[in-house]
C-alpha cells in the first residue's frame, strides 16, 4: 500500500472565500493569539503579575492550571452541574461539600465547575498537611486556596470571596469504598461559625462520582504512619499496577448546589453559641446527605452505560 490510510479518506473542507470587512483573517487571528501568548510569557518571565495576600496567582490559575485539568472535567468525568443559580454572583458565600475519592480530585473539579460555569474563583480551606508538603503547598496557594483556620476563613469571607470547605476532611476523602456516599462527622463546625461572623450564606453542595474514581478497598496503615500520611490506600489497581493504578476510573460526575442556608439573621456574636453552631452544622450535614442520595439516584450508573 503506497498511500497512508489517513491520506486516503481525508476530507478537505471547502471554506467560504475570506472577505475583507467580515472578520479577521485566520492569519491575523493567529497573530493576535501569538501576541497574547507572548505578552503572557513576558509577564511571567519578568515577574510582572499580581498575587493576592494568600498567594493566589489568578493568571497562572486561569491560563495554565485550569486549562490542564479541564479535559479531565469535560471528557474524563463528564461533570454536570445542577442548580448553579444557588451560587451568588458577586458576594461572599461558603460552599460546603462532601469529600471523597481517596485523592481530592473533587476539590479540583469543584473549582473548575465554579470557575467555568459560575465565573467565580473558589478559595478552598485545606488541611495543614497540604501546606507542609513541598510542591503541593505552593500550588495550593497559587491556585487560591489556604489553610483551614478561623482567621483565613474570616478574612476571605469578609472580602466577599467564594470560600469552599470539606468539613469531613480526611475522614471523608479517605473512607473505604464500602462507605461511599455516607457523610462522615463534620469537624467542630468552625465553618458555620465563620459564616455567621461574616453573615454569608452556606451553600450545601453534593458531589456525586468522586467516590468511584479510586475505590479504596484497603489501607496500608503502618506504612502510612511511617510516611506521616493519614492513610495509604489499596485500590483494585493500586499498588498492583504501579503508577498506572493512579489513573482515576472514568466515573460519571454530577455536582448539585443546594438552596443557600442564610446566616445573616443571626448576630455575629451568635458564632460563640456552641448549641446554635452545632444545630446549624447538623442541619447542613442532613441537607447535603439528602442532596447526595437524590443526586446519586438521578445519575444512575457510575460508569454508564455498562455499570
Amino acid at each position: 500500500m503506497s498511500v497512508p490510510r489517513e491520506e486516503k479518506g481525508r476530507v478537505i473542507p471547502i471554506s467560504a472565500a475570506p472577505s475583507f470587512d467580515d472578520r479577521q483573517s485566520p492569519a491575523d487571528e493567529l497573530a493576535d493569539h501569538l501576541a497574547r501568548l507572548l505578552a503572557f510569557l513576558r509577564r511571567r518571565v519578568t515577574g510582572d503579575y499580581e498575587v493576592d495576600e494568600f498567594g493566589y496567582d489568578a493568571e497562572l490559575t486561569d491560563k495554565v492550571v485550569l486549562e490542564l485539568i479541564r479535559p479531565l472535567y469535560t471528557h474524563w468525568f463528564r461533570v454536570e452541574t445542577v442548580e448553579l443559580k444557588n451560587i451568588p454572583h458577586d458576594s461572599g458565600a461558603l460552599v460546603v461539600a462532601n469529600h471523597s475519592g481517596t485523592l481530592p480530585l473533587d476539590a479540583l473539579m469543584l473549582q473548575v465547575a465554579l470557575h467555568d460555569e459560575a465565573g467565580r474563583p473558589l478559595r478552598l480551606l485545606g488541611a495543614d498537611l497540604v501546606y507542609q508538603l513541598p510542591l503541593l503547598s505552593h500550588l495550593a496557594r497559587k491556585t487560591g486556596h489556604t489553610l483551614a483556620c478561623r482567621e483565613d476563613a474570616d478574612r476571605l469571607l469578609r472580602k466577599g470571596e467564594l470560600v469552599g470547605v470539606f468539613p469531613e476532611g480526611f475522614k471523608g476523602v479517605g473512607k473505604p469504598f464500602s462507605e461511599r456516599y455516607k457523610l462522615q462527622r463534620f469537624g467542630r463546625g468552625g465553618f458555620v461559625a465563620s459564616a455567621i461572623r461574616a453573615g454569608v450564606p452556606i451553600v450545601p453542595t453534593a458531589i456525586v462520582g468522586a467516590e468511584e474514581i479510586y475505590p479504596k478497598i484497603g489501607d496500608l496503615k503502618t506504612l502510612a504512619r511511617m510516611l506521616g500520611l493519614p492513610y495509604l490506600p489499596i485500590t483494585p489497581f493500586f499498588p498492583l499496577l504501579g503508577p498506572l493504578g493512579l489513573v482515576p476510573l472514568p466515573s460519571k460526575w454530577m455536582i448539585e448546589f443546594g438552596e443557600p442556608i442564610r446566616t445573616d439573621e443571626y448576630e455575629p456574636s451568635a458564632a460563640d453559641d456552641p448549641m446554635l453552631v452545632f444545630n446549624i452544622t447538623d442541619h447542613v450535614r442532613e441537607v447535603i446527605q439528602q442532596l447526595l442520595n437524590e443526586l446519586r439516584l438521578r445519575r444512575g450508573h457510575a460508569f454508564p452505560p455498562f455499570l
Partner: peptide, 12 residues
C-alpha cells in the same frame, strides 16, 4: 509555619 494563618494581625 504551615500551621499559621496566611495573614497575621497584631493580636494573633
Amino acid at each position: 509555619s504551615p500551621r499559621d494563618p496566611a495573614v497575621f494581625t497584631e493580636d494573633l
